[in-house]
C-alpha cells in the first residue's frame, strides 16, 4: 500500500480524487452564491441554512482537508517534475502539441490559492470566527446574521469595490482555465477514459469550467452594473 501511495500514479490518483471532490464543492458553492441575485432575504436564509445544517458542518473540515491534500500533492508532483528535467531546452515550441492551461496548472493553481486566501480572509473568517462583525437581520421572524451586506459591501464599496470585483473575476477566470484541463485529466488518471470518452469528458470539462467562471463572475458584475 505504501508503495502504491508513493508511486507516481498513486500520487496522481490522490491529486485527481481530491480535485474531483473540490470540483463538486464548487458547484454547491456556486448554487449558494446565486441566492445573492435573489436579494437580501434569500441569501441570508441560504447562509442561515448552511450554518445550521449538520451535513454542511461535518463536511467543512473534510473540505479543508481536501484543499490541503490537493495543494500539497500538486506542489510535490510539480517539484518532482522540475527535478526530472535538470537541463531545459534553449528553444522550445509547445504551442502545437499542448494547451497553455495544461502546461501551467501549477501557476493557475497557485494563483487560485492566493485568491482563496484573500477570499477566506474576507468572508469565511468573518462568518466563522467573527460573526458579530456582521449586523443581524430578521427574516420571517428568525434572527440571522446579515451575510448579504458583508458580501455585497465589498463589491459595492465606493473606494475599492471596482478593484475588488476585478480581482474576484480574474481569480475565477484562472480557476476556469485550471478546471478546463483538470476535469478531463482527473478522469484520465483514474483510468476512466479512452478515445471516445476523452472527447466527451473534455467537452463536459470545458462547459463546466465556463459554468463556474461565468457563474461566479456574474455576481460582482450584477452588483456593479445592474443593482
Amino acid at each position: 500500500m505504501s508503495n502504491f501511495i508513493s508511486s507516481s500514479i498513486g500520487k496522481k490518483l490522490i491529486l485527481s480524487l481530491s480535485g474531483l471532490f473540490l470540483i463538486t464543492f464548487l458547484l454547491i458553492h456556486l448554487i449558494a452564491n446565486l441566492f445573492l441575485l435573489g436579494g437580501s432575504d434569500a441569501f441570508n436564509t441560504a447562509v442561515h441554512f448552511m450554518d445550521t445544517n449538520p451535513v454542511i458542518q461535518i463536511m467543512q473540515p473534510i473540505l479543508a482537508l481536501g484543499f490541503v491534500v490537493h495543494i500539497l500533492y500538486g506542489v510535490i508532483i510539480q517539484l518532482q517534475n522540475w527535478k526530472a528535467t535538470p537541463v531545459n531546452y534553449k528553444t522550445v515550441n509547445q504551442k502545437e502539441s499542448s494547451k497553455w492551461s495544461a502546461r501551467n496548472m501549477i501557476w493557475l493553481g497557485l494563483f487560485v490559492l492566493a485568491f482563496l486566501l484573500i477570499h477566506l480572509g474576507n468572508y469565511f473568517y468573518v462568518m466563522k470566527f467573527a460573526p458579530h462583525d456582521m449586523g443581524s437581520t430578521l427574516v420571517d421572524g428568525v434572527e440571522m446574521h446579515d451575510a448579504y451586506s458583508l458580501v455585497t459591501g465589498l463589491f459595492t464599496n465606493p473606494s475599492f469595490g471596482v478593484i475588488y470585483s476585478i480581482i474576484y473575476i480574474i481569480g475565477f477566470v484562472a480557476l476556469g482555465l485550471h478546471l478546463n484541463h483538470a476535469f478531463w485529466s482527473a478522469f484520465q488518471t483514474i483510468g476512466w477514459s479512452n478515445d471516445v470518452w476523452r472527447k466527451r469528458l473534455s467537452t463536459i470539462g470545458t462547459l463546466y469550467a465556463i459554468l463556474i467562471a461565468v457563474g461566479f463572475s456574474i455576481i460582482p458584475l450584477y452588483f456593479l452594473f445592474i443593482k
Binding site: S8, N81, S97, K99, A102, Q188
Partner: peptide, 24 residues
C-alpha cells in the same frame, strides 16, 4: 522520470501517433 500531467504533448509528437487512451 517525472509524473504525467496529461498535457497530451507526447501523443502529438509521437512518430507513431500512440494515443493517450493507452495511458488511461
Amino acid at each position: 522520470f517525472g509524473n504525467c500531467s496529461n498535457t497530451g504533448a507526447c501523443e502529438m509528437e509521437c512518430p507513431k501517433g500512440i494515443s493517450l487512451a493507452h495511458i488511461a
